[in-house]
């Protein structure tokens, strides 16, 4: 038996989330007396692949098939399912992100394996296999039993953390059997930023709401995010107004994030917004309205004018860093 981890890369480098996934699998393997096999799809150099060993992977399957350079849900499903069967995996772990969710659900059917998405910790019992996930958009947690012999989970980002546990992994090339006719997704155009910290991977997120008054005031948000090596985000009204792109929208219908610090600047904290950010380790709220609901979930709060306070925060961070 083994635990298979889908080790996703971004432009040839593993994400922080991938190392977290391997760490999680390693802890689970200790509980079940199993071992961790990581599966990488796409062009990743050997030196990068070896990094997975730092977190406990003892075997790394490396798939470099040019047909898999862009995501085709079915082709990826076939690849991962074949790897799972070859490695006799009884647990398969995915990141709880766009790619992970798109493939995990297909593999669940292909392998007749029960799936729980958005898991935020190790199983509370291994027999029956019981695991906790967020439900009702972070308003509750559900305890779920997976009844099938093979189990699939997607792990919520920043829910477990990265734990080093050096192993000397074997790297093995793996060539899945895929027919060209399996690939139906034709990518015509790719538009993405590179060299920027991903919002869903960022440890620190600085976010602005309607209280920022207008897009021209975003300079301070961007400056603070840059200073802290973080990402920028916004509330729904801000993206609906077109002040910022939809890709920055965090909340129930936008992105759901779990950074170490979430700075809510001029965000009142509607329940739908909180659904997207309540998993943050620390929430800092800056709002002129002392009754704003954001203060009910914030760890630290400043009641005052965000335009005046943000520059002072920036100065204080600069002072700390110098």
């Amino acid at each position: 038996m083994s635990i298979l981890v889908f080790a996703e890369n971004w432009d040839g480098k593993f994400k922080k989330q991938t190392f977290e996934l391997v760490s999680y699998a390693n802890s689970l393997a200790k509980l079940l007396n199993s071992s961790v096999v990581a599966l990488s799809i796409g062009k990743v150099e050997d030196d990068e692949l070896k990094k997975l060993g730092n977190y406990g992977a003892t075997k790394i399957l490396n798939v470099s098939d040019n047909r898999l350079n862009t995501l085709d849900n079915k082709a990826f499903t076939i690849t991962i399912a074949q790897a799972a069967i070859k490695e006799n995996a009884n647990i398969i772990i995915f990141p709880h992100n766009i790619t992970g969710k798109a493939i995990a659900s297909r593999i669940s059917v292909r392998l007749k394996a029960g799936l729980v998405t958005g898991v935020n910790g190790l199983p509370t019992s291994t027999d029956p296999f019981t695991i906790v996930k967020k439900s009702f958009t972070s308003k509750a947690f559900a305890n779920i039993v997976i009844k099938t012999p093979v189990k699939i989970i997607t792990l919520f980002q920043n829910a477990f953390g990265i734990i080093e546990s050096p192993a000397s992994p074997v790297i093995e090339a793996f060539a899945p059997e895929i027919n060209d006719s399996d690939i139906k997704t034709i990518v015509k155009e790719v538009n993405k930023v590179t060299g920027k910290i991903l919002l869903t991977d960022a440890e620190i997120v600085v976010s602005g709401g309607r209280g920022m008054k207008g897009p021209e005031n975003w300079g301070a948000i961007e400056e603070l995010a840059k200073l802290l090596n973080g990402a920028t985000a916004c509330s729904r009204p801000v993206s609906d107004e077109g002040w910022r792109s939809h890709e920055e929208h965090v909340g129930q219908t936008g992105k759901i994030i779990a950074p170490n610090i979430y700075f809510a600047c001029g965000i009142s904290g509607a329940i739908q917004h909180l659904g997207g950010v309540s998993s943050s380790k620390y929430i800092v709220a800056i709002n002129k309205d002392p009754e704003a609901p954001i203060f009910e979930v914030a760890d630290y709060g400043i009641v005052g004018d965000v335009q005046k306070i943000l520059p002072e925060i920036i100065n204080a961070v600069k002072e700390l860093k110098s």
Binding site: S135, A140, F141, A142, N143, K147, T148, Y300, G301
Partner: peptide
């Protein structure tokens, strides 16, 4: 494939520490 066994409420957050503006 799966069975919902029970639900839990999130733990209440500690009170917000207010900082002098």
């Amino acid at each position: 494939f799966t069975e919902f066994v029970s639900f839990e409420y999130p733990k209440p957050k500690a009170t917000c520490k207010k900082i002098d503006p």
